[in-house]
Nucleic acid binder design. Sequence first.
RNA 1: GGUGGGGUGGCUGAGUGGUCGAAAGCGGCGGUCUUGAAAACCGUUGAGUGUAACAGCUCCCAGGGUUCGAAUCCCUGCCCCACCGCCA
Length: 426
Amino acid sequence: MLDNKLVRSEPEKIKKNLKKRGFELDTAALSALEEKRKSVQVKAESLQQERNTKSKNIGKAKAAGEDIAPLLKEVENLKGALSEAEAELNTIQLEWDSLLAAVPNTLADDVPEGASEEDNVEISRWGVPRAFSFEVKDHVDVGTALGGLDFETAGTITGSRFVSMSADVARLHRALIQFMLNTHGEKNGYTEVYVPYIVNRHSLYGTGQLPKFEEDLFKLEDERGFYLIPTAEVPVTNLLRDKIVDEEQLPLKFVAHTPCFRSEAGSYGRDTRGMIRQHQFEKVELVQFVSPQNSMQALEELTGHAEGILQELGLPYRKVILCAGDIGFSSTKTYDLEVWLPSQNTYREISSCSCFADFQARRMKARYRAKENGKPALMHTLNGSGLAIGRTLVAILENYQREDGSVGIPEVLQPYMNGQSEIKGV
RNA sequence: GGUGGGGUGGCUGAGUGGUCGAAAGCGGCGGUCUUGAAAACCGUUGAGUGUAACAGCUCCCAGGGUUCGAAUCCCUGCCCCACCGCCA
């Protein structure tokens, strides 16, 4: 959610910023509504004031034993006008809120122009894609040949976009989770948390998935209106909802491993083969809560933590900054990390690291008490994948494949696999 | 699933339908004292909106209702606690 005051005081500036995204802010509608709001609010509040003082007078008169009948009559006349004004104000405010709830975050100045994925700007590359002396297979062929990946059976258990894993591949998958959790917890200073995988509407609103992106979510058939989490970002960020912490406690850094559930309703034809785009996948997520002045710095740091995992795994990747047309609804600036997939001869997203400034914090009322003046202020929130487990597994199967069909295990993972250094077929 | 009790400011916790945005304590902040600190004492201290600054308005879990007036009464929902039952 954008700052109400800012939208009111500088609508044109915000409109211009959002235009970069291709979002058309209806400033005419907003300012018309704002005009109405002002006058109605003034009216409602003055009527409220009148009622309050008169009611107090009735109390006093009654205590003094005076006749209150004439006073009652006076207030009686207020009633209709007051409730009418209150109702009108209420309607206006609901309308304002629902308009604003659909407005994305403003962009940081250094977010490049652009309409789509194509216009994202590469920042850096790490590692050199391996030269293969044989024909590379994709992860589906590698994993299936090993007897470790089974899309068909998962398809019969549930449907498309699910997978089952077994034996060493399943263990490698789990090893990745442990490795990432331990690295972020022990080396990078994150506190490990365990959180619910089912959340209510309120939480999804807080991080910005609702009200606009309901079709991406799995909703439970349940009168409570619960949803499966599409990312740990939702429950972990909401840990601070409605909280005020002392500024000294910041930054708060959390790492969580959770499954993620996405309906992928908007991408029917895309990545139908393999594990790249599943309805259910695992992710290790990094979340930071920081003072506003530190958030851009924190984004660099957090992205660096995700990069560290790729480097330790020896996976070539590149870092891109998302352009205005591709960046997420709630984000003010996002870096994607893309891992090299030899079968596709290209880099594919494996992590997305974003700074939300106060956009989520405002929706969640996540605040800190500023040391300077003791006043509560909105904190800044960030998150990033560190990393997406399924895609990391894909990257390892592909980048570490050998001609004989076996797959090498990156050294850092071997302690998590009882020292095992390769996966051979069954 | 059954029965009972609750949800009040950063925290604990009072609050007969009428000067209650709310006692008290803790914590925080400022000060006195002290070489410095602690202790003690004094003062101050909810969140939002609004204003040039005041004023005003809203908020005592959420949403409705009763009333001239609701933290207080009624209804619904959510959550928490205790005991019993059931399950792991």
